[in-house]
Simulated assay, not measured.
Amino acid sequence: METPGRPRKIIHVDMDAFYASVEQRDNPELRGLPIAVGHGEARGVVAAASYEARKFGVHSAMPSVTAKRKCPELIFVRPRFGAYQAVSQQIHAIFAEYTPLIEPLSLDEAYLDVTENLKGIGVATEIAEEIRGKIKARTGLTASAGVSYNKFLAKMASDQRKPDGLFVITPKNGPAFVEALPVKKFHGVGPATAERMHRLGIETGGDLKACDLAFLQQHFGKSGPYFYWIARGVDERRVKPDRVRKSIGAEDTFSADIHDFETARSGLQPLIEKVWRYCEVNRIQAKTVTLKVKWGDFTQITRSKTVTAPIASAGELADVAMLLLSPLFPVAKGIRLLGMSLSSLDSASIEDKHQLAFAL
């Protein structure tokens, strides 16, 4: 239990170039080379880039053609999400040796509250070093870690010495660290918000700290109080081990626009299988299915359906997806991208899902 007035000890662990590092680990021929995980086709997107590729300015979410232009020697490797999931489970098992208070953010990063920990280690930095060492020994991969007294600063710290680094922000130096940090590097400040802050003359944490709460609420709405407090090094959010994602999804951009139903159905099937596999592995159930369609002219639409009982199988998910897809045909323009997502999520066993479905 947390002692009132006692600083918490939070660790943020972030794997280094995770997808790309797994590929380089499993294929020695790729080591030391600039690689991108993703589809190298004309309309593909980079899912992850190795540090060798990042030196050329290649980064995740970049169009494949842009990445190839920046780095002509770039090697594209198709993603293997099953492999990444398996390594992620190894890493989370290491976390669980130290604390039950683990809040995963994705396959490759998580917050850990080690204020009170299972090994009785009093220094959070020592725990972070042990965890990084075990990850290296068991998976062959490197992780960077940030240690601080709240989630925001732990997240900021983990970026300071990547790759394969550790950085600590103490209660004493936290406020000064934030004041010197450019706001565009703040976790929670995206490019659009950073640009808005720039127009208001806010370039650093110090500039943000100089703004009063009313001003920040006027210009940033509900995010105003968050910005007000983090500018002062204050973040009271707890590490939530029961954190439930609001939605899960997958999408794919096709090498050529799709015009017929059968091709669209074939293109949607791998996305259905990927989303369902995530549900099975993480014991998640869902009731709302959403189909995303981006047309060749870059306009897009979504169609959703909520069922009465949690979806019980990949086949059932496919049936609902086809109910959403089929009314769109015949199409007036080609389909550039299809996406599939699930929401209204809850945790339950697969067996429970079947029982609930048949009960109704």
Rank of each mutant, 00 (worst) to 15 (best):
R132W: 05
E126G: 04
T263L: 12
D26T: 08
G267Q: 08
A86C: 01
Y111Q: 08
T299F: 02
K292V: 12
Y226R: 11
W276S: 04
H92V: 15
S88D: 09
G233H: 01
L325S: 09
A192V: 15
K55F: 06
A286C: 03
K240H: 14
F227T: 03
H354P: 11
S304R: 08
G296A: 10
T170W: 06
R238K: 14
L216Q: 11
H59V: 11
G315E: 02
R161P: 00
P4D: 03
A357L: 03
F298A: 00
T290A: 01
V58T: 03
Q269K: 13
P34G: 04
A124I: 06
L324R: 02
D212F: 07
H219Q: 08
S50Y: 06
G40D: 07
V45C: 00
F18C: 07
P182G: 09
D26E: 15
I75M: 03
K70G: 02
K119N: 09
G133C: 06
S106L: 07
I135Y: 12
R8Q: 07
G249R: 06
S158H: 00
E126F: 03
E52P: 04
F152R: 14
C211A: 07
V331Q: 03
K294A: 08
P28A: 08
L342F: 00
F177Q: 00
A312V: 13
R78P: 05
E52G: 11
E126Q: 12
V37I: 14
A359T: 14
N117T: 02
A318S: 15
H259A: 11
D108F: 10
G296V: 15
L356G: 11
S148C: 05
R283N: 10
A180D: 12
R78G: 02
S247E: 09
I248F: 00
P310A: 13
R243E: 07
D352Y: 15
R237F: 02
M197N: 11
N173Q: 04
I272C: 15
T66W: 02
V189Y: 07
V13W: 04
A157E: 01
S21A: 10
E203K: 13
T125P: 05
D212V: 08
L30S: 07
L153R: 00
H259N: 06
K294H: 10
P182R: 07
P191V: 14
I127P: 02
L118K: 14
E351I: 00
R31L: 10
F177P: 01
P7V: 09
V147R: 02
T302H: 05
A194P: 03
R8F: 08
V168Q: 01
E273Q: 15
R283A: 15
S148E: 00
F81R: 09
R31F: 13
R245N: 12
R265V: 12
L342T: 10
Q355P: 00
G249C: 05
G38D: 06
F76I: 00
